[in-house]
Amino acid sequence: MAELLDALAVALKAGIGFQAVFFALLAIGLNIQFGYTGLLNFGQIAFALLGGYGIAISVSQWGLPFWVGVLIGLAAAVVLALLLGIPTLRLRADYLAIATIAAAEGLRLTFRSVSATPVTAGTRGLSGFSDPFVSLAPWDPAARFRILGTTWSGADLWVTLVGWVLVALACLLVWLLVRSPWGRVVKSIREDEDAVRALGKNVYVYKMQALVLGGVLGALGGMVYAVGTASATPDQYQNANTFLAYAALILGGAARVLGPVIGAMLLYFIIQFADTGLRTLIGNGVIPEDLLSATDVAQIRFVLIGLGLILLLIFRPQGIFGDRREVMLDAR
């Protein structure tokens, strides 16, 4: 029993740790793009990669100050959004989906390729760029803190705290935007862009704004992740993360300001709890070794997540915060 409580504590830590911040920021970006504007961005992780590497390359390779690295990362995300949006946003929604999924995979492979090694350090990745940020912590980064039965380093605590401040600011921004006439136009584009065009709105500009804003939030997520892990390797930015962020968004409720945040916390809590919990049960002998070995846990937890999502879509398709009436309108 005590071991399960430990597993719960570890999962709680994961649910409020910087990984959850990472997913929350990705999902808030997707919420603007997909939840409100109806854009299918299947390569959100590419923006995170540019954010993370923006800092890593600027600081570790070029010796620039940390904050310049942040600006470079954000600028790179804006450029990527424009590059993806200019050719595809005049076309049907699926073209953006194809372009983004290709860009995400292409960027990751480019960053880990041999020819890019002088800049990106290839698969080994970059590290040592987060110190200027961690040293800003008002407490000792090397100190140990015990919170809710888990141990946090001072650096972890600082990155997580700043991360949640970013999430709060992002939520405030989304909240301000979606209750304004801008938000109304964007939601209308999600419903029917031709109707919006016929009423004199430049749909292309709105879609571009949503794509850039969502991408910038994705880049911030990538920065939190890179600083939190104190390293940047290309394979941290697998495109599966994009779909986990979508899962978080749908779990929490799309087109709701807090949906992606709660979704990300819950998703990361469940992933971690499934992992530690299963390992504990196997270690105890509650689950026999021949049925499930400890090495299978890493895979089986995603199977459980998948099952959970299927059940969610059957019994609560609107997610935690969503409005069921709104979702059911599509079924007509």
Binding site: P181, R184, V185, K187, S188, R190, E191, D192, A195, V196, L199, K201, E326, L329, D330
Partner: peptide
Amino acid sequence: LSRLTVLQNMLLG
């Protein structure tokens, strides 16, 4: 625009 209210539909115009 199905998932907007009638009034929001109007305001869009």
